[in-house]
Design a protein around this nucleic acid. Sequence first.
DNA 1: GACAATGTTCCTTTAATAGGAACAAATTTC
DNA 2: GAAATTTGTTCCTATTAAAGGAACATTGTC
Lengths: 251, 251
Amino acid sequence: MQAQSTVEKAIDILFHLHAEPHACGVTAIGRRLGLSKSSTHRLLSALGRRGLVEKDDRGRYRTGIGLVALGVGALDREPIVAAARPVLEAEAAALGETVFLVAARAGRIIVLDKSEGEGFLRASPRIGSTVPVHATAVGKLYLAFGGGSVEAPAGELEKFSNATIARRSALAAAVARAAERGFAENSDEWIPGLSVVAAPVMATASDGRMLAAVAVAAPTPRMQSLGREEIGRRMLAAAARVAARFEGVAQ
Amino acid sequence: MQAQSTVEKAIDILFHLHAEPHACGVTAIGRRLGLSKSSTHRLLSALGRRGLVEKDDRGRYRTGIGLVALGVGALDREPIVAAARPVLEAEAAALGETVFLVAARAGRIIVLDKSEGEGFLRASPRIGSTVPVHATAVGKLYLAFGGGSVEAPAGELEKFSNATIARRSALAAAVARAAERGFAENSDEWIPGLSVVAAPVMATASDGRMLAAVAVAAPTPRMQSLGREEIGRRMLAAAARVAARFEGVAQ
DNA sequence: GACAATGTTCCTTTAATAGGAACAAATTTC
DNA sequence: GAAATTTGTTCCTATTAAAGGAACATTGTC
Protein backbone atom coordinates (compact mmCIF):
# COMPACT_ATOMS: atom_id res chain seq x y z
CA MET A 1 0.00 0.00 0.00
CA GLN A 2 1.69 3.15 -1.20
CA ALA A 3 0.67 6.33 0.55
CA GLN A 4 0.42 9.17 -1.90
CA SER A 5 -0.85 12.27 -0.22
CA THR A 6 0.18 13.62 3.15
CA VAL A 7 -3.34 13.12 4.39
CA GLU A 8 -3.21 9.45 3.57
CA LYS A 9 0.06 9.04 5.41
CA ALA A 10 -1.50 10.63 8.47
CA ILE A 11 -4.48 8.31 8.23
CA ASP A 12 -2.14 5.34 7.87
CA ILE A 13 -0.56 6.39 11.14
CA LEU A 14 -4.01 6.40 12.76
CA PHE A 15 -4.76 2.90 11.50
CA HIS A 16 -1.35 1.70 12.60
CA LEU A 17 -1.85 3.07 16.11
CA HIS A 18 -5.29 1.50 16.06
CA ALA A 19 -3.86 -1.89 15.20
CA GLU A 20 -1.20 -1.72 17.89
CA PRO A 21 -2.37 -2.68 21.37
CA HIS A 22 0.11 -0.39 23.11
CA ALA A 23 1.33 3.16 22.61
CA CYS A 24 4.02 3.55 19.94
CA GLY A 25 7.10 5.73 19.64
CA VAL A 26 7.89 8.05 16.76
CA THR A 27 10.80 5.95 15.55
CA ALA A 28 8.87 2.70 15.52
CA ILE A 29 5.94 4.21 13.62
CA GLY A 30 8.21 5.81 11.05
CA ARG A 31 10.14 2.61 10.50
CA ARG A 32 6.96 0.59 10.13
CA LEU A 33 5.35 2.94 7.60
CA GLY A 34 8.51 3.94 5.75
CA LEU A 35 8.50 7.56 6.90
CA SER A 36 11.39 9.60 8.22
CA LYS A 37 11.46 10.36 11.91
CA SER A 38 10.91 14.07 11.40
CA SER A 39 7.99 13.58 9.02
CA THR A 40 6.39 11.13 11.40
CA HIS A 41 6.82 13.58 14.21
CA ARG A 42 5.23 16.42 12.28
CA LEU A 43 2.27 14.31 11.20
CA LEU A 44 1.75 13.15 14.77
CA SER A 45 1.88 16.74 15.97
CA ALA A 46 -0.80 17.76 13.48
CA LEU A 47 -2.99 14.83 14.52
CA GLY A 48 -2.40 15.70 18.16
CA ARG A 49 -3.43 19.34 17.70
CA ARG A 50 -6.85 18.07 16.66
CA GLY A 51 -7.05 15.43 19.38
CA LEU A 52 -6.90 12.38 17.12
CA VAL A 53 -3.78 11.09 18.84
CA GLU A 54 -2.57 11.56 22.40
CA LYS A 55 0.81 11.40 24.05
CA ASP A 56 1.34 9.46 27.22
CA ASP A 57 3.75 10.38 29.99
CA ARG A 58 6.72 8.84 28.24
CA GLY A 59 6.17 10.60 24.91
CA ARG A 60 4.61 7.57 23.27
CA TYR A 61 1.60 8.07 21.04
CA ARG A 62 -1.77 6.35 20.98
CA THR A 63 -5.15 7.04 19.39
CA GLY A 64 -6.98 9.97 20.94
CA ILE A 65 -10.41 10.77 22.21
CA GLY A 66 -11.28 12.86 19.17
CA LEU A 67 -11.51 9.69 17.13
CA VAL A 68 -14.14 8.36 19.49
CA ALA A 69 -16.30 11.42 19.00
CA LEU A 70 -15.97 11.25 15.22
CA GLY A 71 -16.66 7.53 15.14
CA VAL A 72 -19.75 7.54 17.30
CA GLY A 73 -21.19 10.43 15.37
CA ALA A 74 -20.58 8.63 12.09
CA LEU A 75 -22.56 5.67 13.35
CA ASP A 76 -25.57 7.67 14.43
CA ARG A 77 -25.50 9.38 11.06
CA GLU A 78 -26.21 6.15 9.21
CA PRO A 79 -29.98 6.18 8.77
CA ILE A 80 -30.09 2.39 8.68
CA VAL A 81 -28.55 2.32 12.18
CA ALA A 82 -31.14 4.71 13.54
CA ALA A 83 -33.89 2.65 11.93
CA ALA A 84 -32.56 -0.63 13.27
CA ARG A 85 -31.63 0.26 16.84
CA PRO A 86 -35.06 -0.18 18.48
CA VAL A 87 -35.55 -3.44 16.61
CA LEU A 88 -32.15 -4.72 17.75
CA GLU A 89 -32.92 -3.82 21.35
CA ALA A 90 -36.36 -5.43 21.25
CA GLU A 91 -35.04 -8.67 19.75
CA ALA A 92 -32.09 -8.82 22.12
CA ALA A 93 -34.41 -8.33 25.10
CA ALA A 94 -36.87 -10.94 23.83
CA LEU A 95 -34.26 -13.59 23.01
CA GLY A 96 -31.65 -12.77 25.66
CA GLU A 97 -28.97 -13.11 22.98
CA THR A 98 -26.84 -10.59 21.12
CA VAL A 99 -28.54 -9.15 18.03
CA PHE A 100 -26.56 -7.05 15.59
CA LEU A 101 -26.78 -5.09 12.37
CA VAL A 102 -24.27 -5.73 9.61
CA ALA A 103 -23.82 -4.14 6.18
CA ALA A 104 -21.46 -4.06 3.22
CA ARG A 105 -19.19 -1.06 2.93
CA ALA A 106 -16.50 -0.80 0.28
CA GLY A 107 -16.77 -4.50 -0.55
CA ARG A 108 -16.36 -5.62 3.04
CA ILE A 109 -18.91 -6.74 5.60
CA ILE A 110 -18.90 -4.54 8.68
CA VAL A 111 -20.66 -4.61 12.04
CA LEU A 112 -22.70 -1.38 12.27
CA ASP A 113 -24.50 -1.78 15.59
CA LYS A 114 -25.40 -4.32 18.23
CA SER A 115 -27.52 -4.91 21.28
CA GLU A 116 -25.98 -7.46 23.59
CA GLY A 117 -27.70 -10.34 25.29
CA GLU A 118 -27.64 -11.17 28.96
CA GLY A 119 -25.70 -14.39 29.17
CA PHE A 120 -22.39 -14.69 30.94
CA LEU A 121 -21.23 -16.31 27.70
CA ARG A 122 -22.49 -14.05 24.96
CA ALA A 123 -21.39 -12.77 21.58
CA SER A 124 -19.85 -9.32 21.74
CA PRO A 125 -18.86 -8.27 18.23
CA ARG A 126 -16.85 -5.09 17.85
CA ILE A 127 -18.69 -2.31 16.15
CA GLY A 128 -16.76 -1.31 13.04
CA SER A 129 -15.00 -4.64 12.74
CA THR A 130 -14.96 -6.68 9.54
CA VAL A 131 -16.24 -10.25 9.29
CA PRO A 132 -15.27 -12.83 6.66
CA VAL A 133 -17.59 -13.41 3.69
CA HIS A 134 -17.42 -17.14 3.15
CA ALA A 135 -17.67 -18.22 6.79
CA THR A 136 -20.57 -16.17 8.11
CA ALA A 137 -24.34 -16.15 7.78
CA VAL A 138 -24.34 -12.52 6.67
CA GLY A 139 -21.67 -13.25 4.05
CA LYS A 140 -23.88 -15.90 2.48
CA LEU A 141 -26.80 -13.47 2.47
CA TYR A 142 -24.76 -10.88 0.64
CA LEU A 143 -23.63 -13.44 -1.91
CA ALA A 144 -27.27 -14.44 -2.41
CA PHE A 145 -28.99 -11.03 -2.34
CA GLY A 146 -26.22 -8.44 -2.48
CA GLY A 147 -26.11 -8.04 -6.25
CA GLY A 148 -22.32 -8.21 -6.39
CA SER A 149 -21.68 -5.62 -3.68
CA VAL A 150 -19.62 -8.26 -1.90
CA GLU A 151 -17.66 -11.13 -3.42
CA ALA A 152 -16.09 -14.25 -2.01
CA PRO A 153 -12.33 -13.88 -1.59
CA ALA A 154 -10.13 -14.90 -4.49
CA GLY A 155 -7.91 -17.94 -4.12
CA GLU A 156 -8.08 -20.41 -1.26
CA LEU A 157 -10.98 -20.05 1.19
CA GLU A 158 -9.43 -19.47 4.58
CA LYS A 159 -10.15 -22.27 7.05
CA PHE A 160 -11.18 -20.87 10.42
CA SER A 161 -12.46 -24.09 11.96
CA ASN A 162 -13.33 -27.68 11.14
CA ALA A 163 -16.78 -26.55 10.04
CA THR A 164 -15.59 -23.81 7.67
CA ILE A 165 -16.81 -24.32 4.10
CA ALA A 166 -13.71 -25.12 2.08
CA ARG A 167 -14.94 -25.88 -1.46
CA ARG A 168 -16.51 -23.29 -3.73
CA SER A 169 -19.17 -25.74 -4.82
CA ALA A 170 -20.24 -26.22 -1.19
CA LEU A 171 -20.30 -22.45 -0.73
CA ALA A 172 -22.48 -22.07 -3.84
CA ALA A 173 -24.86 -24.67 -2.42
CA ALA A 174 -25.06 -22.85 0.92
CA VAL A 175 -25.71 -19.56 -0.90
CA ALA A 176 -28.44 -21.20 -2.99
CA ARG A 177 -30.07 -22.55 0.15
CA ALA A 178 -29.98 -19.08 1.71
CA ALA A 179 -31.55 -17.61 -1.44
CA GLU A 180 -34.30 -20.21 -1.25
CA ARG A 181 -35.08 -19.88 2.46
CA GLY A 182 -34.62 -16.10 2.61
CA PHE A 183 -32.34 -16.32 5.64
CA ALA A 184 -28.93 -17.85 6.35
CA GLU A 185 -27.24 -19.59 9.22
CA ASN A 186 -23.76 -20.41 10.38
CA SER A 187 -22.74 -23.05 12.90
CA ASP A 188 -19.15 -22.97 14.10
CA GLU A 189 -17.96 -22.09 10.59
CA TRP A 190 -16.10 -19.02 11.72
CA ILE A 191 -15.69 -19.27 15.48
CA PRO A 192 -16.11 -22.70 17.09
CA GLY A 193 -19.05 -22.68 19.46
CA LEU A 194 -20.71 -19.65 17.86
CA SER A 195 -23.88 -19.91 15.80
CA VAL A 196 -25.55 -17.10 13.91
CA VAL A 197 -28.88 -16.78 12.08
CA ALA A 198 -29.27 -13.74 9.82
CA ALA A 199 -31.92 -12.20 7.58
CA PRO A 200 -31.50 -9.50 4.92
CA VAL A 201 -32.98 -6.03 5.15
CA MET A 202 -34.27 -5.37 1.65
CA ALA A 203 -35.37 -1.98 0.31
CA THR A 204 -39.02 -2.63 -0.41
CA ALA A 205 -39.83 0.58 -2.24
CA SER A 206 -37.11 1.70 -4.60
CA ASP A 207 -34.72 -0.70 -6.29
CA GLY A 208 -35.05 -3.62 -3.93
CA ARG A 209 -31.38 -3.86 -3.12
CA MET A 210 -30.03 -5.29 0.11
CA LEU A 211 -29.47 -2.56 2.69
CA ALA A 212 -28.07 -4.56 5.59
CA ALA A 213 -28.64 -7.73 7.58
CA VAL A 214 -30.06 -8.42 11.04
CA ALA A 215 -28.41 -11.29 12.83
CA VAL A 216 -28.62 -13.04 16.16
CA ALA A 217 -25.57 -14.73 17.64
CA ALA A 218 -25.58 -17.32 20.39
CA PRO A 219 -23.51 -20.21 21.70
CA THR A 220 -24.29 -23.18 19.43
CA PRO A 221 -26.11 -25.28 22.07
CA ARG A 222 -28.46 -22.44 22.94
CA MET A 223 -29.13 -21.71 19.27
CA GLN A 224 -29.89 -25.40 18.82
CA SER A 225 -32.49 -25.37 21.57
CA LEU A 226 -34.08 -22.16 20.31
CA GLY A 227 -34.69 -23.78 16.93
CA ARG A 228 -33.00 -22.48 13.80
CA GLU A 229 -36.14 -22.38 11.67
CA GLU A 230 -38.09 -20.44 14.24
CA ILE A 231 -35.24 -18.01 14.81
CA GLY A 232 -34.93 -17.61 11.04
CA ARG A 233 -38.58 -16.61 10.76
CA ARG A 234 -38.11 -14.26 13.67
CA MET A 235 -35.11 -12.56 12.02
CA LEU A 236 -37.04 -12.22 8.76
CA ALA A 237 -39.78 -10.42 10.62
CA ALA A 238 -37.25 -8.21 12.41
CA ALA A 239 -35.51 -7.36 9.12
CA ALA A 240 -38.87 -6.43 7.60
CA ARG A 241 -39.54 -4.11 10.54
CA VAL A 242 -36.15 -2.46 10.05
CA ALA A 243 -36.89 -1.98 6.33
CA ALA A 244 -40.29 -0.46 7.09
CA ARG A 245 -38.83 1.93 9.65
CA PHE A 246 -36.03 2.86 7.24
CA GLU A 247 -38.37 3.70 4.39
CA GLY A 248 -40.71 5.47 6.76
CA VAL A 249 -37.92 7.61 8.16
CA ALA A 250 -36.10 8.17 4.90
CA GLN A 251 -39.56 8.73 3.39
CA MET B 1 -9.03 28.59 14.20
CA GLN B 2 -6.42 28.72 11.49
CA ALA B 3 -5.55 25.43 9.85
CA GLN B 4 -1.85 25.21 9.21
CA SER B 5 -0.96 21.83 7.88
CA THR B 6 -2.78 19.89 5.20
CA VAL B 7 -3.51 17.18 7.72
CA GLU B 8 -5.29 19.61 9.99
CA LYS B 9 -7.41 20.89 7.13
CA ALA B 10 -8.43 17.33 6.34
CA ILE B 11 -9.33 16.73 9.99
CA ASP B 12 -11.31 19.97 10.04
CA ILE B 13 -13.32 18.59 7.14
CA LEU B 14 -14.01 15.45 9.17
CA PHE B 15 -15.23 17.46 12.15
CA HIS B 16 -17.31 19.65 9.90
CA LEU B 17 -18.98 16.64 8.31
CA HIS B 18 -19.43 15.24 11.79
CA ALA B 19 -21.20 18.40 12.94
CA GLU B 20 -23.51 18.51 9.92
CA PRO B 21 -26.54 16.27 10.16
CA HIS B 22 -26.73 15.69 6.41
CA ALA B 23 -24.25 14.97 3.65
CA CYS B 24 -22.42 18.03 2.33
CA GLY B 25 -21.23 19.06 -1.12
CA VAL B 26 -17.69 20.01 -2.07
CA THR B 27 -18.58 23.64 -2.66
CA ALA B 28 -20.37 24.07 0.65
CA ILE B 29 -17.54 22.49 2.64
CA GLY B 30 -14.91 24.60 0.90
CA ARG B 31 -16.86 27.80 1.46
CA ARG B 32 -17.41 26.99 5.13
CA LEU B 33 -13.76 26.20 5.87
CA GLY B 34 -12.19 28.76 3.54
CA LEU B 35 -10.72 26.24 1.12
CA SER B 36 -10.85 26.30 -2.64
CA LYS B 37 -13.11 23.87 -4.39
CA SER B 38 -10.26 21.90 -5.91
CA SER B 39 -8.36 21.64 -2.63
CA THR B 40 -11.47 20.50 -0.84
CA HIS B 41 -12.05 17.92 -3.51
CA ARG B 42 -8.54 16.56 -3.26
CA LEU B 43 -8.66 16.34 0.52
CA LEU B 44 -12.01 14.56 0.34
CA SER B 45 -10.59 12.13 -2.21
CA ALA B 46 -7.69 11.30 0.08
CA LEU B 47 -10.04 10.79 3.03
CA GLY B 48 -12.29 8.67 0.85
CA ARG B 49 -9.45 6.40 -0.30
CA ARG B 50 -8.98 5.43 3.36
CA GLY B 51 -12.71 5.10 4.07
CA LEU B 52 -12.99 8.04 6.47
CA VAL B 53 -15.57 9.75 4.27
CA GLU B 54 -18.11 8.26 1.89
CA LYS B 55 -19.94 9.59 -1.12
CA ASP B 56 -23.66 9.11 -1.49
CA ASP B 57 -25.51 8.62 -4.75
CA ARG B 58 -25.61 12.31 -5.51
CA GLY B 59 -21.91 12.97 -4.98
CA ARG B 60 -22.38 14.44 -1.52
CA TYR B 61 -19.93 13.52 1.20
CA ARG B 62 -20.50 12.26 4.72
CA THR B 63 -18.39 10.62 7.42
CA GLY B 64 -17.39 7.06 6.59
CA ILE B 65 -17.33 3.72 8.28
CA GLY B 66 -13.57 3.80 8.76
CA LEU B 67 -14.04 6.43 11.44
CA VAL B 68 -16.30 4.08 13.35
CA ALA B 69 -13.66 1.38 13.42
CA LEU B 70 -10.98 3.81 14.57
CA GLY B 71 -13.22 5.32 17.22
CA VAL B 72 -14.39 2.08 18.77
CA GLY B 73 -10.86 0.79 18.91
CA ALA B 74 -9.67 3.96 20.60
CA LEU B 75 -12.25 3.51 23.32
CA ASP B 76 -11.35 -0.06 24.12
CA ARG B 77 -7.72 1.02 24.31
CA GLU B 78 -8.39 3.28 27.29
CA PRO B 79 -7.59 1.10 30.30
CA ILE B 80 -9.99 3.06 32.49
CA VAL B 81 -12.84 2.13 30.14
CA ALA B 82 -11.96 -1.55 30.29
CA ALA B 83 -11.78 -1.33 34.08
CA ALA B 84 -15.09 0.48 34.41
CA ARG B 85 -17.29 -1.41 31.94
CA PRO B 86 -18.37 -4.30 34.20
CA VAL B 87 -19.06 -1.87 37.00
CA LEU B 88 -21.17 0.33 34.73
CA GLU B 89 -23.16 -2.67 33.54
CA ALA B 90 -23.73 -3.97 37.05
CA GLU B 91 -24.89 -0.60 38.36
CA ALA B 92 -27.12 0.04 35.36
CA ALA B 93 -28.72 -3.37 35.78
CA ALA B 94 -29.22 -2.88 39.52
CA LEU B 95 -30.65 0.63 39.27
CA GLY B 96 -32.39 0.38 35.92
CA GLU B 97 -30.94 3.79 35.03
CA THR B 98 -28.17 4.90 32.71
CA VAL B 99 -24.72 4.81 34.32
CA PHE B 100 -21.77 6.36 32.55
CA LEU B 101 -18.06 7.01 32.79
CA VAL B 102 -16.73 10.51 32.22
CA ALA B 103 -13.20 11.90 32.22
CA ALA B 104 -11.23 15.05 31.44
CA ARG B 105 -9.33 15.11 28.17
CA ALA B 106 -7.52 18.20 26.94
CA GLY B 107 -9.30 20.41 29.46
CA ARG B 108 -12.76 19.24 28.48
CA ILE B 109 -15.09 16.74 30.13
CA ILE B 110 -15.92 13.87 27.82
CA VAL B 111 -18.26 10.86 28.00
CA LEU B 112 -16.06 7.76 27.70
CA ASP B 113 -18.58 4.93 28.09
CA LYS B 114 -22.10 4.18 29.21
CA SER B 115 -24.49 1.42 30.06
CA GLU B 116 -28.06 2.42 29.46
CA GLY B 117 -31.01 1.84 31.73
CA GLU B 118 -34.28 0.24 30.82
CA GLY B 119 -36.81 3.04 31.04
CA PHE B 120 -38.71 4.30 28.05
CA LEU B 121 -37.53 7.72 29.21
CA ARG B 122 -33.85 7.32 29.93
CA ALA B 123 -30.64 9.27 29.62
CA SER B 124 -28.68 8.37 26.50
CA PRO B 125 -25.50 10.44 26.43
CA ARG B 126 -23.37 10.28 23.32
CA ILE B 127 -20.04 8.61 23.81
CA GLY B 128 -17.31 11.07 22.90
CA SER B 129 -19.48 14.12 23.47
CA THR B 130 -18.45 17.01 25.69
CA VAL B 131 -20.47 18.19 28.70
CA PRO B 132 -20.31 21.65 30.29
CA VAL B 133 -18.20 22.13 33.42
CA HIS B 134 -20.27 24.50 35.51
CA ALA B 135 -23.66 22.84 35.00
CA THR B 136 -22.95 19.18 35.63
CA ALA B 137 -22.21 16.94 38.59
CA VAL B 138 -19.00 15.68 37.02
CA GLY B 139 -17.88 19.24 36.31
CA LYS B 140 -18.17 20.10 40.00
CA LEU B 141 -16.20 16.97 40.90
CA TYR B 142 -13.38 17.96 38.57
CA LEU B 143 -13.32 21.46 40.03
CA ALA B 144 -13.15 19.94 43.51
CA PHE B 145 -10.76 17.03 42.94
CA GLY B 146 -9.28 17.51 39.47
CA GLY B 147 -6.25 19.51 40.53
CA GLY B 148 -6.71 22.11 37.79
CA SER B 149 -7.09 19.63 34.93
CA VAL B 150 -10.41 21.32 34.16
CA GLU B 151 -11.40 24.93 34.77
CA ALA B 152 -14.69 26.76 34.78
CA PRO B 153 -15.20 28.72 31.57
CA ALA B 154 -14.01 32.32 31.48
CA GLY B 155 -16.56 35.08 31.28
CA GLU B 156 -20.29 34.68 31.76
CA LEU B 157 -21.50 31.25 32.89
CA GLU B 158 -23.84 30.01 30.18
CA LYS B 159 -27.43 29.63 31.39
CA PHE B 160 -28.89 26.33 30.20
CA SER B 161 -32.00 26.30 32.39
CA ASN B 162 -33.63 28.11 35.30
CA ALA B 163 -31.65 25.93 37.69
CA THR B 164 -28.23 26.61 36.14
CA ILE B 165 -25.77 28.10 38.61
CA ALA B 166 -25.17 31.64 37.40
CA ARG B 167 -22.88 33.27 39.99
CA ARG B 168 -19.31 32.20 40.60
CA SER B 169 -19.78 32.39 44.35
CA ALA B 170 -22.65 29.91 44.12
CA LEU B 171 -20.51 27.63 41.97
CA ALA B 172 -17.68 27.80 44.51
CA ALA B 173 -20.16 26.85 47.24
CA ALA B 174 -21.41 23.86 45.22
CA VAL B 175 -17.83 22.75 44.58
CA ALA B 176 -17.01 23.06 48.29
CA ARG B 177 -20.05 20.95 49.13
CA ALA B 178 -18.93 18.30 46.62
CA ALA B 179 -15.42 18.31 48.14
CA GLU B 180 -16.95 17.80 51.57
CA ARG B 181 -19.40 15.03 50.65
CA GLY B 182 -17.09 13.28 48.20
CA PHE B 183 -19.75 13.12 45.51
CA ALA B 184 -21.70 15.70 43.50
CA GLU B 185 -25.19 16.06 42.14
CA ASN B 186 -27.02 18.06 39.52
CA SER B 187 -30.75 18.67 39.30
CA ASP B 188 -32.03 20.24 36.11
CA GLU B 189 -28.99 22.52 35.98
CA TRP B 190 -28.05 21.48 32.47
CA ILE B 191 -31.06 19.74 30.97
CA PRO B 192 -34.45 20.35 32.58
CA GLY B 193 -35.85 17.11 33.95
CA LEU B 194 -32.46 15.38 34.14
CA SER B 195 -30.71 14.66 37.43
CA VAL B 196 -27.24 13.20 37.85
CA VAL B 197 -25.27 11.93 40.84
CA ALA B 198 -21.54 11.38 40.30
CA ALA B 199 -18.54 10.14 42.28
CA PRO B 200 -14.85 10.52 41.43
CA VAL B 201 -12.54 7.63 40.58
CA MET B 202 -9.34 8.42 42.44
CA ALA B 203 -5.99 6.73 41.90
CA THR B 204 -5.39 5.11 45.27
CA ALA B 205 -1.85 3.94 44.77
CA SER B 206 0.33 6.43 42.93
CA ASP B 207 -0.30 10.17 43.00
CA GLY B 208 -3.93 10.16 44.04
CA ARG B 209 -5.17 12.17 41.10
CA MET B 210 -8.68 11.97 39.71
CA LEU B 211 -8.86 9.44 36.87
CA ALA B 212 -12.51 9.74 35.88
CA ALA B 213 -16.00 9.91 37.34
CA VAL B 214 -18.83 7.42 37.56
CA ALA B 215 -22.27 8.96 37.23
CA VAL B 216 -25.88 7.84 37.17
CA ALA B 217 -28.46 9.85 35.24
CA ALA B 218 -32.21 9.63 35.67
CA PRO B 219 -35.32 11.71 35.20
CA THR B 220 -35.51 14.05 38.20
CA PRO B 221 -38.63 12.49 39.78
CA ARG B 222 -37.11 9.00 39.72
CA MET B 223 -33.82 10.29 41.16
CA GLN B 224 -35.84 11.97 43.89
CA SER B 225 -37.54 8.73 44.87
CA LEU B 226 -34.30 6.76 44.77
CA GLY B 227 -32.80 9.13 47.34
CA ARG B 228 -29.82 11.28 46.47
CA GLU B 229 -27.77 10.44 49.55
CA GLU B 230 -28.17 6.72 49.07
CA ILE B 231 -27.33 6.96 45.36
CA GLY B 232 -24.31 9.08 46.25
CA ARG B 233 -22.98 6.39 48.59
CA ARG B 234 -23.67 3.82 45.93
CA MET B 235 -21.69 5.77 43.31
CA LEU B 236 -18.81 6.22 45.75
CA ALA B 237 -18.66 2.46 46.18
CA ALA B 238 -18.86 1.93 42.41
CA ALA B 239 -16.06 4.45 41.81
CA ALA B 240 -13.92 2.68 44.39
CA ARG B 241 -14.50 -0.61 42.59
CA VAL B 242 -13.45 0.96 39.29
CA ALA B 243 -10.29 2.34 40.90
CA ALA B 244 -9.45 -1.05 42.40
CA ARG B 245 -9.96 -2.82 39.07
CA PHE B 246 -7.89 -0.16 37.30
CA GLU B 247 -4.94 -0.49 39.64
CA GLY B 248 -5.27 -4.24 39.60
CA VAL B 249 -5.23 -4.38 35.82
CA ALA B 250 -2.62 -1.69 35.29
CA GLN B 251 -0.78 -3.39 38.16
C1' DG C 1 -34.70 22.80 -23.70
C1' DA C 2 -31.86 26.48 -21.61
C1' DC C 3 -29.85 27.92 -17.39
C1' DA C 4 -27.68 27.54 -13.11
C1' DA C 5 -25.18 25.19 -9.80
C1' DT C 6 -22.20 21.50 -8.55
C1' DG C 7 -18.63 17.81 -8.90
C1' DT C 8 -14.32 16.77 -11.40
C1' DT C 9 -10.01 17.47 -13.94
C1' DC C 10 -6.07 20.14 -15.63
C1' DC C 11 -2.10 23.10 -15.05
C1' DT C 12 1.30 26.42 -13.09
C1' DT C 13 2.68 29.18 -9.20
C1' DT C 14 3.46 28.74 -4.52
C1' DA C 15 4.17 27.02 -0.17
C1' DA C 16 4.40 23.10 2.71
C1' DT C 17 6.75 18.69 3.19
C1' DA C 18 10.69 15.41 3.40
C1' DG C 19 14.73 14.00 5.32
C1' DG C 20 19.39 14.63 6.87
C1' DA C 21 21.75 16.36 10.80
C1' DA C 22 22.23 18.31 15.21
C1' DC C 23 20.38 18.54 19.93
C1' DA C 24 18.24 17.04 24.31
C1' DA C 25 16.16 13.58 27.32
C1' DA C 26 15.50 9.33 28.80
C1' DT C 27 16.76 4.47 29.18
C1' DT C 28 20.00 0.91 29.19
C1' DT C 29 24.39 -1.05 29.87
C1' DC C 30 28.67 -1.62 31.89
C1' DG D 1 27.10 5.85 39.13
C1' DA D 2 28.95 7.08 34.56
C1' DA D 3 29.16 6.03 29.67
C1' DA D 4 26.68 4.65 25.75
C1' DT D 5 22.74 4.00 23.14
C1' DT D 6 18.22 4.83 21.94
C1' DT D 7 14.50 8.01 21.29
C1' DG D 8 11.79 12.39 21.05
C1' DT D 9 12.33 17.11 19.27
C1' DT D 10 14.08 21.02 16.52
C1' DC D 11 16.39 23.21 12.54
C1' DC D 12 17.30 23.88 7.75
C1' DT D 13 17.08 23.61 2.56
C1' DA D 14 16.12 20.94 -1.81
C1' DT D 15 12.21 18.87 -3.36
C1' DT D 16 7.65 17.78 -3.99
C1' DA D 17 3.03 18.03 -3.23
C1' DA D 18 -0.74 21.39 -2.49
C1' DA D 19 -3.41 25.64 -3.81
C1' DG D 20 -6.32 28.01 -6.77
C1' DG D 21 -7.91 29.71 -11.10
C1' DA D 22 -10.09 28.03 -15.18
C1' DA D 23 -12.10 24.77 -18.20
C1' DC D 24 -15.01 20.68 -18.49
C1' DA D 25 -18.67 17.43 -17.24
C1' DT D 26 -22.79 16.41 -14.90
C1' DT D 27 -26.84 17.12 -12.43
C1' DG D 28 -30.91 19.35 -11.12
C1' DT D 29 -34.13 23.24 -12.05
C1' DC D 30 -36.99 26.68 -14.11
